[in-house]
């Protein structure tokens, strides 16, 4: 009886969502720069856009198995940041590649950390993309209307593996040289165009400076551009279609 009375005397009105979540503080932070309440917002409705996106509910059936895609994206960002840092010291020539990697590891401040992060994030990213794909597979999330996003996903998987393949050669170590020699021999077995393919990839008969230049260009310019394009497509489709429903 006493408890009931106490309950009834509790205030009925709850603080608004904006107040409880700190959304207002966030807006105010942006508004300092004139983005949310200032002249820019008058023209672009930034506040509305922010509110709409920040308030988008995440369905209850979304569990931890859904986080592998996001972790893949995070690791990709780590690769971008650490990769650009490595570029400051790496030299893509047969004479200097190996030395520059040793220099990064032993002499550049925190070079060991940046190189180690790039190394491990690469391996983890492949695991995470795989787990993500397995999640999508077992949840049947590849069925229409998400079939084209699955195709985009398979392309992302091959691009991720492409990063691994081209990056492996860059230190110009014994293992990277010979693994690439064996790996670039594989396309030679394709009927008719095999020889041409293998030469195209190597930039010559054997793995050498042209191969290193080529793999470097693919690893740091071409693949990042192409994967960004497909990642954008992947995320636009997810946004438009929403996450797949409960099983």
């Amino acid at each position: 009886m006493v408890e009931q009375e106490q309950k009834e005397t509790k205030p009925q009105t709850q603080p608004s969502f904006e107040q409880r979540s700190g959304l207002r503080e966030l807006f105010e932070l942006f508004s300092l720069t004139g983005f949310v309440y200032g002249p820019l917002d008058e023209r672009l409705d930034i506040r509305d856009a922010l509110e709409k996106n920040l308030k988008k509910p995440v369905p209850h059936h979304v569990n931890w198995l859904f986080c592998f895609g996001g972790i893949s994206l995070f690791l990709f960002v780590v690769q971008g940041v650490t990769g650009i840092m490595l570029l400051m010291y790496y030299r893509p020539t047969v004479a200097e590649a190996y030395k520059s990697v040793v220099f990064i590891t032993n002499n550049v401040p925190f070079g060991w950390l940046v190189r180690g992060l790039h190394h491990w994030a690469a391996n983890l990213m492949i695991i995470m993309v795989f787990l993500h794909m397995a999640r999508v597979f077992f949840y049947g999330a590849y069925k229409p209307p998400r079939d084209f996003n699955w195709v985009t996903g398979v392309i992302l998987l091959t691009l991720t593996l492409g990063f691994g393949f081209t990056g492996y050669l860059l230190p110009w170590s014994q293992i990277s040289y010979w693994a690439t020699t064996v790996g670039t021999e594989v396309p030679a077995a394709v009927p008719f165009i095999g020889g041409f393919l293998s030469t195209l990839i190597r930039g010559g008969q054997a793995v050498g400076q042209s191969t290193l230049t080529r793999f470097f260009a693919v690893h740091v310019v071409i693949l990042p551009l192409v994967i960004s394009f497909f990642l954008l497509g992947h995320f636009f489709m997810i946004r438009k279609q929403g996450i797949s429903g409960p099983l």
Binding site: V78, V94, Y98, V101, V102, T105, W112, L113, R115, G116, L117, H118, H119, W120, A121, L124, P171, W172, S173, Q174, I175, S176, Y177, W178, A206, V207, G208
Partner: peptide, 18 residues
């Protein structure tokens, strides 16, 4: 990631010898 890097640094193999 950082734990992995500290305990298992990126390997440094011998240089390429064609």
């Amino acid at each position: 990631l950082v734990t992995l890097v500290m305990f298992f640094p990126a390997p440094m193999e011998p240089p390429a010898d064609p």
